[in-house]
Design a protein around this nucleic acid. Structure first.
Lengths: 133, 133
DNA sequence: GTGGGTGCAAATAATTTGCACGGTA
DNA sequence: TACCGTGCAAATTATTTGCACCCAC
């Protein structure tokens, strides 16, 4: 993940964009809301505005640099796109989030869409689990 | 689904509540946003206000009469709770929501949880699709 | 009668947009 | 230098809340 990714997305390499990209690169596997980022950036002495954060997040998402998730609390959160697709498993006791990938599951989803006369564009899957003691 | 369900939820049986409950009962398997309902109720000559719709939806959800979903288009949608589990397929072009059930999928999810040393408690799965022309 | 319920309008919350200034190529 | 990008504030969108009036019990 580097500055040239910004240029490849057809965007000018500016300070706010570099700061946001660098923050995500330094915190892979974590999820942040626009407001989280705003607070973090300010702590890092950045002058970036909240509106710019939203604009940059949308541009990065369109460029495939980051992924946007909608959890059920209203706010959107973003994470770095690592190129490795995964789904999430949430421990209902601890709130711990585990990432997992299943080829079988991916195939089944494509089949299910096809059975309904559709092409699969994307999916969202979260398993809520409890550890077996 | 009947008036006594409202009373059992500890709520007074009022006209707006009856109207909303009746609308859901007459349209099982469909998903409506608060604004959809507001429009539909006005068409049915109801004087119900949008704020009341939001209040009633929250109360019904708390009572387990309806289910709230957050798909990726900002607005929340609600459907009647029928007691029969199903997952959702959202058409990204039209926003149309289709329900589906796959035994294979349910089994696979249980297996995946088990592979990670866990017991499956619940899950949330949405396929985003496009119709094949 | 009384306390919860309602419609309306104003208040929030998350996000987007208009605008004049500033920085990148 | 031309033009995209930016911060700020105002606009939008979805939802919640305050308040005076109304209705089911």
């Amino acid at each position: 993940m580097k500055a040239s990714d910004i240029k490849n997305a057809g965007l000018k390499v500016t300070l706010p964009r570099l700061q946001v990209l660098e923050f995500f690169s330094k915190n892979p596997g974590n999820h942040y809301s626009a407001d989280d980022l705003f607070t973090k950036m300010r702590q890092l002495k950045s002058e970036i505005g909240l509106a710019t954060i939203y604009r940059v997040l949308n541009q990065f998402e369109a460029a495939g640099l980051i992924i946007k998730h909608q959890f059920e609390n209203g706010q959107s959160v973003y994470e770095l796109e690592t190129g490795e697709h995964h789904d999430h498993m949430v421990d209902v006791d601890t709130g711990e989030v585990k990432e997992f990938f299943s080829h079988k599951l991916e195939q089944l989803q494509i089949e299910l869409a096809k059975e309904h006369g559709c092409e699969l564009i994307d999916h969202n899957m979260v398993l809520y689990v409890k550890k077996i003691k």
